[in-house]
Amino acid sequence: MKGNPELNVNRPKAHRKAEITRQDPSASDNSNMPQVKLQPTVNYSDPLLRELVSHLRENRTQLREVWARNILDAKLLSAMSKEEIFSEVTSVYDNYVEVLETGSVDALQAYARNLSERIIPRGVETDEVIGIVLLLRDVLARSLFKKYQHDFNLLNRVLDAYEPAANRIANTVAVSFVQENVRIIRQQQEAIRELSTPVLQVRERLLILPIIGVIDSQRAKQLTEQLLRGIRNNRAKVVVVDITGVPTIDSTVANHLVQTVEASRLMGAGVIITGLSSEIAQTLVTIGVDLSKMNAVGDLQGGIELAEKMLGYKVKSVDSTAAEVEIDT
């Protein structure tokens, strides 16, 4: 199977995507958000911070533009258009100043999550997001440097007040982005695990259903329905169900497996089960599953070989020359 580049994954991609987005984003609340504690001693009533805020407000237009240009020069957020970057930059800038003023990162956090949700699907990477926040930090620090360079002492104090706040902001944005990313990946994994055990067509008339992970009743039903549709759509005659990746099986699931085999047979397809560990085989015998009804073969390779023999034999009866070819390969 490994060497076969023509694996035909049956499940349409669009469908998978629809499943992924179905979960309500508010369901994963931020209660378990790891609060990164960097320099927790930001004193937001510091008069220096207030002075800083008014400086950033006064120079909003100019600083914002410098920042946007730096982002473009650094080729960050390349998935977005110039206009989009500029509009996001404005929002981030205003949120940024607000954090410095109020000390509350709530609004920024909400915005960063929202932004992440919008840009992750477009392929924006974590380093880009961290990059733009660090650029802003840099732009603002330079402007402070320029303003206070005549008084080295004052500059030091301003930077002392600014840096912890800026770090906190950078952290908030980066963590929000990473969390959003993790949430999306988790959702995708879950959706893939739950809904898309792929039915693979290895060659004409032969399907493989590799089952990975824990099977419960609900999933077993889904798998069976999917397999039966796959049999009809691919006109399959033999199906190899590989359960190497299934850790345990209880009696309910074992019965589902037997049902899958029988339902496939009703549609005229033979089923071969592979990867039945001795532990699972023992369980099946103990709970009284009739293994003689199942065509069990040790591993996937052996299962595919047997499947091809079965197909070859069946083809032979229709057209003996085709069968020779089939068996010899």
Binding site: T224, E225, L228, R229, I231, R232, Q259, T260, E262, A263, S264, L266, M267, G268
Partner: peptide, 14 residues
Amino acid sequence: IVGIQPEVAFAMVQ
């Protein structure tokens, strides 16, 4: 016997 549909086969085994 030919033509047992997927849903029908599923209901039968259930």
